[in-house]
Design a protein around this nucleic acid. Sequence first.
DNA 1: AAGTGGTCTAGACCACCTT
DNA 2: AGGTGGTCTAGACCACTTC
Lengths: 245, 245
Amino acid sequence: MSSVILPHAAIPKYYQLATILQGKIEAGEWAPRSPIPSERQLELMYDVSRPTIRQAIEYLITQGLLYREHGRGTFVSPEKLQKGLRELTSFTEDLVQRGIRPGQVIRSIERITPPEGVLQRLELPVGSTVIRIDRIRLGNETPIGLQVSYIALAPGQEITIEDMEKTGSLYRILEEKFNLIPTEADETLEVTLANREEANLLEINEGSPLLLSERLTFTQNRRPVEFVHILYRGDRYRYYTRLKR
Amino acid sequence: MSSVILPHAAIPKYYQLATILQGKIEAGEWAPRSPIPSERQLELMYDVSRPTIRQAIEYLITQGLLYREHGRGTFVSPEKLQKGLRELTSFTEDLVQRGIRPGQVIRSIERITPPEGVLQRLELPVGSTVIRIDRIRLGNETPIGLQVSYIALAPGQEITIEDMEKTGSLYRILEEKFNLIPTEADETLEVTLANREEANLLEINEGSPLLLSERLTFTQNRRPVEFVHILYRGDRYRYYTRLKR
DNA sequence: AAGTGGTCTAGACCACCTT
DNA sequence: AGGTGGTCTAGACCACTTC
């Protein structure tokens, strides 16, 4: 059995155990809606204390993989519910799951002084500069959305087009280069109609309906890092989300 | 000091403590971004063990009221982030926060055999019946949305118009009458255009842009209970959501 | 060095569900 | 009655931050 919890390891025991349990679920060893071993059994199986077992289980519950029923047991979630929030809300993952090839064209990356409304949302003083990334999002090589991101980084902290092309993901850059971890976001969605320029870029008629998303993303310290404005083609895009509690 | 943790009470200690801390935050006793007392200090202040303190803090973190920084302390969230998911996603709460008077017209409540697609999503066998509730949602007395809910209840488990008028909330009825607690939902949003009937009911022109939301709600046992289809007027409604992790 | 949160133990008793 | 998860204790040591 490869499933052994290492003591004194860099990785916490509860996390090692969570990884093992997750592996068994994903391998189909425990079917959806069937119970996993009880907390006392897991104590014996892995030689860790019950609070640690519970911490591992609680982690997997927040991830959507397990649910508990008092007096009955702990059960594997139905497959549909096993996807995390991250996968459900990432543009790229979204398309991949629907069998569409995602892509992007980076139109520009610049340090600029944004509109006042953007500075207010990012809680920056008037006159501050931010990095603006202007992109066209593609699905199967056709335009699906126009995305403009404003990122609150002080002068000297820069993001280059090489960074974006190497990793492909803005969030990876924020995490690895600046230790900024997006943990929370407020998003609004509404309907609007395409103006001339938007229609040209999205290859649709002027006046076509669009889905407008505005998102403010916060880091682990609850500081705003990013304000994003995205216009999606109404006929090519559907927004997915999962609500909890 | 009224803040005393009662032993042997029906309410768990961690929850009593969480309520006390929440009260202090909402009363402004601890300002946003300022630290609350350390876990060791809280141990002495309330005479409960540290794991219990931590459980209370973890609960308030999931509620969005606090955040932690390793080695620095536990801090009060900025006010904007103190709203829970529930408030952000309830139609009624949504409008109230924007200073709009919410209302509804119940067009019908019936037990019917729904379209096959609805039965599939509710994981019911072909030919099953469900309860359909057909409503018009109002904001300041004008129509904002058309909502059709399909609720997976066995024959004999019924919802009456009196139930709806007494509580006003479908979720309250599900919880109090049937012990079904909605805990998770998958939602999609897309753009569509109003047909003749929809335009009439919403008092807009045919062909006006609408926001279409489809939501599948799951109970504490991860069983689907409700499928909802809502058409919102594009010019009168904006959808808010909060993403975590 | 001192204070903070992060992890972990080895128990205990209670509430809920099934048989 | 026996098994399950829910709550709680009184400690311990570690990792990170600040002084």
